[in-house]
Amino acid sequence: MQVKHLLLIAIFALTAACSSNETISENLGETELYRQAQADLDNKSYNSAISKLKALESRYPFGRYAEQAQLELIYAYYRNMEPEAARSSAERFIRLHPQHPSVDYAYYLKGLASFDQDRGILARFLPLDMTKRDPGAARDSFNEFAQLTTRFPNSRYAPDAKARMVYLRNLLAANEIHVADYYLRRQAYVAAANRGRYVVENFQGTPAVGDGLAVMTEAYQRLSLDDLANTSLETLKLNYPEHPSLDNGQFVPRQAEADNRGWLSRATLGLIESKDAPLDNSQSNRDVLRQYENAARDLPDELRPVLREAEAEEDQASGRSWWSYLTFGLFD
């Protein structure tokens, strides 16, 4: 990221911190307080507008501008890049005024706040791939827009909400494919197949469905489940003949097949590698080591002489340590 972008972010942060300490005069009446808050919103002075709108609501909770001030406070928080505060204010307004003529606007702003929650100011300057980020906020936004379009199908905000839902659905599907690819790289083929099937079953109409079929095909091939692999492949060829995983009708796996990983590496998604892996002192690793210690202790007596002879021969050839014996060579 360029230095000027870092400086711009620092200036924004300092400006927000300095402008949040504004003192609101006690002599301002309800109308004047609301007028000044409106002027601040028009000038994009959102910190100042927030201070005035909060003062208006606290000083005149039953005044003529109280409900409107609550709505505009949601907007001010949203424009000030405070998504949590915007969502909280929107939820409060919906709870207090479920029959308000503009309650659909509160639902819309709540969805927008979640939509932008994980984007933030850095996303304006960094080339972030949103499909690889935590999908929690995107899922919340989709659900909130869905509430708006279901409860208020004729709302003026419904068309934009529906368009954003299409984008969010595509994003969530693509995120599932990224997770499935991770499982393929870790040779967790059952988990990868389940992710691919989830995309195919729950995200019909998204571009990721073809990727989901490709993931299923590859995972089933790795698992030697030929019937399932062939079914997935035929469905992929029929519906997505131009998919990148197909080369002249032949399936090309996403990940190169590895043949040098032990069952422990696959079972732990690669967290415990059989070669060149640093020793880990986590609870999960201690549990695994304890299992092998117990297995070594419980070996039948008739096998111990044979095992010791084999270990002695291998030790002379490779110089194995006591740690290698203890873990049966898993961490060599």
Rank of each mutant, 00 (worst) to 15 (best):
L168D: 07
A192N: 02
L184N: 01
H178R: 14
Y198V: 01
R197C: 00
D181Q: 13
Y167P: 02
L172C: 06
D181K: 13
D181R: 14
L171P: 06
A193M: 10
Q187D: 13
Q187P: 09
D181F: 10
A173V: 05
Y198P: 01
R169T: 15
A191E: 03
L168K: 12
A192Q: 05
Q187E: 14
R169H: 14
Y182I: 14
A193I: 12
L168P: 11
L171G: 07
R169K: 15
Y189E: 07
A188N: 10
I177V: 12
Y167E: 04
A188T: 10
V199F: 05
A192C: 02
R186M: 02
A180E: 11
Y183A: 01
A173K: 07
H178N: 11
L168N: 13
A191D: 02
N194D: 00
A173H: 09
R186L: 02
L171R: 14
Y183F: 10
Q187Y: 13
A192G: 04
Y189I: 05
I177L: 09
E176N: 13
Y167I: 01
Q187T: 06
N170W: 07
A191L: 01
V199Y: 05
L171T: 05
R169N: 15
V166A: 07
A193K: 06
N194H: 01
N175F: 12
R169I: 13
R195A: 00
G196A: 11
G196T: 15
Y182L: 14
N194W: 00
N175H: 15
N175T: 10
H178P: 02
V179G: 11
A173C: 09
V166F: 08
A174P: 11
Y167A: 03
V190D: 06
Y189A: 02
R186P: 01
E176Q: 15
E176R: 15
